[in-house]
Amino acid sequence: MKAAFRLCHKYLALCLGALWLLQALTGMLLVFHRELDDKSLGASGQAVNFAVVDRVLGQLAQGEPATKIVEYFVSGGVAGQVDVLIERAGAAREVVRIDGATGIVLRTSAWEEPRSQLGLFRFVLLAHKQLLAGRFGEWLIGISGVFLLINIVLGLKLAWPRAGQWRAALFPRPAKAPAAKRFAWHRAMGLWLAPFASLVALTGSLMTWTQELPAAATAPLAPATSSAVSARDGRMISSAAAVEVARHLYQDATVAIVSMPSEQRPWYSIRLRQPGELRRIYGATQVRVDADTGEPMATFDALRMSMADKIFVALYPIHSGEWGGVATRLLAILVGVWLAGTMAFGLLLWIARRAREGMRSTQRVGVRSV
């Protein structure tokens, strides 16, 4: 049985190792990608002024060809930066980065297509999530994550030390033979972080199938009861007014995403983050505001959600390391380094063993010929 586990562990790594390495490298880049991306644009760093954002939205909507504002959301790195997701007639979706305090347009880039116009970190994100291949790529990533989890468990089973041998296994002594040295470090690194890496692999795979999981985004919203803002003249209220309604209901929360009304959904959907939510930026608290009357239609309090929704919402912060602040985000980077390192030592071990087997075969041939 152990020999079968070893063969399965080896060939899973050889077949999927390149994909896992891509996931590790892109994942490490994404841990602090918002801060890195935002600092490169030179925004003011002041708080978002939603009235200013409304003014810019009006200017963007007047552009040619006809433009529809889908939603806008805080970038999550430097304070005050806002990304506006827009649709133009006959064109792919674009994302316009603005300074939410001054209204200055900082960048325009593609949302998914054409790839040549993607921002650097947006490109990395799509490569990490879907291999730039849409839903099909997401499924490939999810399935590869399942195999990665299986391989980590197999590796733990094979590397698990006997009683009294833990110290030697975790901190191997120098070995003379190349194969023995590489095996010792491959085993040690696997034992160091395998439990946390298993959690990262599991949450990453589950995130692939969020459409099939119970989600806070689709959970019933509770009817709202009161509001501080109301439209007086019958016209559609501004997004800034809708934001004030949401802020009145959740005064300690920060605004993360504002989804615009449409003919099918005549309301603003405001997503907020309350203190105590695991996610660092995009909390799960929601408020729907009637676009005509300015009255809150429904709410979703992320601090009072069901256990199923709590598990769902926790997937991303656990996977990305957001759940515990900077320390756990650094730990997420360390998991990427760990995966790359264990794969490197595993590959070197396989090469050393192949070379040793080749030498033995050559010696056997030589003996027979004599």
Rank of each mutant, 00 (worst) to 15 (best):
L106S: 02
L193M: 13
A256L: 02
S198N: 01
I143K: 04
I86P: 01
D292A: 14
T203R: 06
A217N: 15
A47L: 12
A110M: 15
P317V: 04
G103Q: 07
A177W: 04
G325R: 04
V84W: 00
S361R: 06
L347S: 10
E113H: 13
I333C: 12
T67A: 02
A302P: 04
G42A: 12
E295R: 14
H33M: 14
V70D: 04
G336W: 04
R271G: 02
D54L: 13
P172A: 04
S44R: 02
L156V: 15
F32D: 12
S259I: 01
T285M: 09
L193R: 05
E244Y: 02
A340S: 15
I152V: 15
V287F: 08
R329F: 08
P172G: 02
T225H: 12
Q59C: 03
F171Y: 14
I150N: 07
K10Y: 03
A332P: 07
V335Y: 03
R368H: 06
F136H: 07
C15Q: 11
G324H: 01
A79H: 02
L19S: 08
I141H: 02
I311Y: 12
I143Q: 08
W111D: 08
V365A: 07
L118H: 09
L36A: 15
A355Y: 08
P65A: 05
Q130K: 04
F171Q: 05
A217R: 15
M260E: 00
W209D: 04
V146D: 05
Q62T: 10
Q274E: 09
A24L: 09
G42P: 11
V287N: 02
F171T: 12
S269K: 10
T108W: 05
S369W: 09
K176I: 13
L149H: 03
P223V: 13
W338N: 05
V287R: 01
P317Q: 04
I351W: 11
A314N: 11
V124Q: 02
F196K: 01
T210G: 14
P296M: 09
R122F: 00
D309E: 15
F147K: 03
A61G: 05
L156R: 06
R368G: 06
E263G: 13
A284V: 11
L60V: 03
F121V: 13
